[in-house]
């Protein structure tokens, strides 16, 4: 069994946001009007977080793409009353829309605020539903959703591998964000495979995890940018 994880090299990330756009297209994330967005009523599965801290003369910048970190010890899975969100066999935190009752307990439990609740019916202006990815459902109002590491791609890749009578190979399963990144800043793979790039890079001296002190053990590892900030 694999244990899927990701490394994001913030030294290479240009902050273009292609990852977020790819995620929206791949996962049929609906558009939202400004008022809804401002009220915090809808979030993208993958947001580009940018924070400027400190004072002008030594302003510190933190900018990173933030998606569900698929924690090994995920707080959201512990509070779901119906088992709609849980850690699956390969370490991904799954979100099963049909079980979700929309209580939003998990959304509140997540310390990274990466889960989003569908307050509204999704709006797909006429004709735009043609670009919906047929491999992913279109969620109704009333359920929570979040990054799934494009698990549907794993479903298809695994099916193909079994059909061809072989194991899943490296590169068979890649989330949309990792695939699209024009800077090549995102690496995805099996953390339990010592030969995989993701497991090697996650041990890099620049590696850090968000809010590590909470003990969530996220499986998305960030690599601090090189060099000093002036």
């Amino acid at each position: 069994m694999s244990r899927w994880g990701m490394v994001v090299d913030l030294g290479a990330c240009t902050g273009c946001g292609a990852c977020g756009v790819a995620c929206r297209q791949e996962n049929n994330v609906p558009d939202v009007d400004e008022r809804t967005w401002r009220n915090g009523r809808q979030r993208d599965w993958l947001q580009l977080v940018t924070k400027v801290e400190g004072r002008y003369h030594d302003a510190q910048v933190e900018s990173y793409p933030l998606m569900c970190l698929h924690c090994d010890d995920a707080p959201c899975t512990k509070v779901c009353p119906v088992g709609a969100t849980y850690s699956d066999e390969e370490g991904l935190v799954a979100q099963i829309y049909d079980r979700c009752i929309g209580c939003r307990y998990c959304t509140n439990a997540c310390p990274y605020s990466v889960k989003t609740f569908n307050w509204l019916d999704p709006v797909w202006p006429q004709g735009t539903e043609r670009r919906q990815n047929p491999d992913v459902s279109v969620r109704p109002r009333g359920v929570v959703e979040k990054c799934t590491m494009c698990h549907h791609r794993h479903q298809k890749a695994d099916d193909r591998a079994r059909f061809e009578g072989r194991e899943l190979r490296h590169g068979d399963y890649t989330p949309a964000c990792v695939e699209i990144c024009p800077a090549g800043a995102m690496i995805f793979g099996d953390l339990d495979d010592p030969e995989s790039e993701v497991s090697k890079r996650s041990e890099d001296k620049r590696a850090y995890r968000l809010m590590e002190e909470l003990g969530t053990e996220p499986k998305v590892v960030f690599l601090r940018p090189h060099g000093k900030r002036s």
Partner: peptide, 10 residues
């Protein structure tokens, strides 16, 4: 055979 929800739900 597996009954893991995420194997079939998407």
């Amino acid at each position: 055979v597996t009954t893991d929800c995420a194997r079939c739900h998407r």
